[in-house]
């Protein structure tokens, strides 16, 4: 196959992957975030302690996490048809991808939110804040760097899942690699898709890490523009210390 033959196929597939991963990530984050926060709040000693609710959500999340994605996809077929009207194509693949992503992200959110210092929660309570205030002003903003890292992990996991979704008619880069690279014996095609995926994942990881680090550094030491600062003064930390005393 020549490059001119491959190019439109690659473009189409990349676009499909982007759509599938983009939407499913969005849904996973929007629904997984409250679920993860709820897991922390309803836990023993939490602000909304409720053992029953906690157990139920925990179980649902565990089942979702432990189910192999390909089985989840098949199991959800009738639900997918009910939502999108079809079980094939990228749109249909978004449904199982999102549902697989929700518990995955929820667990990561739970871990991130648990890391937030309980003293901060207490401080907001002492100011007269209610549980919603605690979630909005403390738990989420303080866990933000970790939440961004969790989102990165989720996106990358969903790219992996999307390749599987591809094999049952979801389209996307994974599908392309299997159909052309494997079934049609076009190793060139295979390697190009692999390289594309590798580059995409590296870029996402890099961007996610950078965002998390920048936010964290703000809390850590540097201030809003760590790079600029480094250019201006050699040792901003030392300068601060001398002022402090």
């Amino acid at each position: 196959m020549t490059w001119s033959q491959m190019q439109p196929l690659l473009e189409q597939a990349s676009w499909e992957t982007l759509i599938m991963v983009g939407w499913s990530t969005l849904i996973a984050v929007v629904l997984g975030l409250p679920l993860g926060v709820l897991l922390v709040l309803t836990d023993r000693g939490g602000l909304l302690q409720n053992v029953l609710v906690n157990k139920v959500i925990g179980q649902v999340v565990n089942i979702g996490r432990s189910m192999p994605f390909i089985i989840l996809m098949v199991a959800l077929m009738s639900f997918t048809r009910w939502v999108t009207g079809t079980t094939i194509g990228s749109e249909a693949a978004i449904v199982p991808l999102a549902i697989g992503g929700i518990p995955f992200f929820a667990r990561l959110v739970e871990t991130a939110v648990r890391e937030v210092d309980g003293g901060l929660v207490e401080a907001v309570q002492s100011m007269g804040g209610n549980t919603w205030t605690v979630v909005r002003k403390v738990l989420v903003p303080e866990a933000l760097p970790s939440l961004i890292a969790s989102t990165t992990t989720t996106v990358i996991a969903l790219i992996g899942y999307s390749a599987m979704a591809g094999t049952v008619g979801g389209g996307g880069l994974g599908d392309l690699a299997v159909r052309y690279g494997y079934q049609r014996f076009e190793p060139g095609f295979m390697w190009i898709t692999v390289a594309l995926l590798a580059v995409a994942i590296s870029l996402i990881q890099f961007a996610g890490d950078y965002a998390a680090r920048t936010l964290h550094r703000r809390g850590g030491r540097g201030g809003a523009g760590p790079r600029l600062r480094l250019l201006k003064t050699k040792e901003p930390a030392a300068a601060d210390v001398s002022k402090v005393a």
Partner: peptide, 24 residues
Amino acid sequence: AGRELRQARSRIGMVFQHFNLLSS
């Protein structure tokens, strides 16, 4: 904490050993 208690708390200041400032 109910509404009234939260209102009463807002009129009581509290400082902590580990400051409990939001790093974000």
